[in-house]
Computed example of a mutant assay.
Amino acid sequence: MTEATDAPEDLVRAVRAAGVSDERLLQAVRATPRAAFVPPDHRAHACHDVPLPIGHGQVTTQPSLSAMMIAGLDLSGNEHVLEIGTGLGFQTALLARLAADVVTIEMWPDIAHQALCNLAGQGLRNVELRVGDGSGGVPDRAPYDAVIVSAAFPEVPAPLAGQLCSGGRLVQPIGPGGQEQVMSFLRTPTGLERSRMLTLAYFVRLRGRYGFPS
C-alpha cells in the first residue's frame, strides 16, 4: 500500500475536482502533508479526501471542503486572518501558507496543544494559537481581513462580523449543525452581506457564548 505521505497529489486532485483552481491554494495543499495533522492511528487514511476523528466528538474538515472555504476568502497573501476552530491544524497550515499571518482559536486545550506541535513541526511561525470560546472571536487582535469559521450556526455571530474589516470576507457554514450552506460574506460599509454559497456540507455545531450552549 502506498503511504499517505507519498501521495500529496491525491488530495490535490480531490481539491481540483471540487472546483478549486487557485494555483497558490493547490500548491499549499501540495506542500502540506496531511499525515502530519491527523492522529497516528488514522495516518494511513490521510491522503483520502475524508474527515477524520480527532476526539471530543470533533472531526477534521474534509480537505477539499477546507480548500473550497479558503478559496471563498479570496486571499492574496497579505491578509491578517482569523480562524475559528483550529482542530489539529491542517487548515491552519494552508491559511498560514496563503496569508501574512493567522490567529486561530480552539476550544479544546489538548487538541490545541497537538495542533501547536503539528504546526511547529512544519516550521510555520506566522500562526498565533489561542484556547477559548471561538464564537466571540479574538477581539484584541482585530480587525481581520478575513475570517473562516469551521463550525455551524444559523447566523454569523455578531462579534465575528464586528471584527472583520470593511472589504473583508468571512466564510461560515450557516445552519443548525447537520446539512449547512457554506456561505461567503463580504463586509460592506453597511454591514455583512451574503456574497455566494460555496457548497452544502455537514458541520459540527459552533459552541460558546455566541453560538449553541456548550
Rank of each mutant, 00 (worst) to 15 (best):
T2D: 05
T5L: 09
E9H: 11
V15E: 02
V15N: 03
R16S: 08
R16D: 03
A17E: 04
A17K: 15
A18N: 10
A18K: 14
G19F: 11
V20Q: 09
V20W: 05
R24P: 08
R24S: 02
R24I: 07
V29Q: 13
R30Y: 03
A31F: 01
R34W: 01
A36K: 13
V38D: 03
P40L: 09
R43Y: 13
R43F: 01
R43D: 05
A44I: 15
H45R: 10
H45S: 12
D49G: 07
V50G: 02
P53R: 06
I54W: 11
G55I: 15
H56L: 15
G57A: 10
G57L: 08
G57E: 05
Q58P: 07
V59N: 13
T61Y: 06
Q62Y: 04
S66F: 09
A67S: 10
A67N: 03
M68D: 05
M68K: 11
M69H: 10
A71M: 01
A71G: 02
G72L: 08
L75G: 08
L75V: 11
N78H: 05
H80N: 02
H80K: 03
H80Q: 03
H80A: 01
V81A: 12
L82R: 00
E83R: 05
G87V: 07
G89E: 10
F90N: 11
A93Q: 00
A93N: 01
L95G: 08
A100T: 12
A100L: 13
D101P: 06
V102F: 02
I105E: 02
M107T: 09
W108V: 11
D110K: 08
A112H: 07
L116R: 13
C117E: 07
N118G: 04
L119D: 01
Q122C: 03
R125A: 14
R125H: 07
N126I: 06
V127H: 02
R130W: 12
R130P: 06
R130F: 14
G132F: 04
D133T: 00
G136V: 14
G137K: 11
V138G: 12
R141V: 14
R141K: 14
A142L: 13
A142C: 14
P143V: 13
P143E: 07
Y144F: 15
D145Q: 01
D145P: 10
A146H: 01
I148Y: 02
S150N: 10
S150L: 11
V156L: 03
A158N: 06
P159F: 03
L160S: 06
A161H: 04
L164C: 09
G168K: 14
G168C: 12
V171D: 01
Q172I: 15
Q172V: 15
Q172A: 10
I174D: 00
G175L: 08
G177P: 02
G177F: 02
Q181W: 10
V182K: 09
V182R: 10
M183H: 09
S184I: 06
S184W: 08
S184R: 07
F185D: 00
F185N: 09
L186V: 08
R187D: 04
R187W: 01
T188D: 03
T190C: 06
G191P: 01
L192E: 06
R194M: 11
S195K: 04
L198F: 01
L200A: 13
R205Y: 07
L206C: 02
L206W: 00
R207F: 09
R207D: 08
G208E: 04
R209P: 00
Y210F: 04
P213Y: 00
P213E: 07
P213W: 12
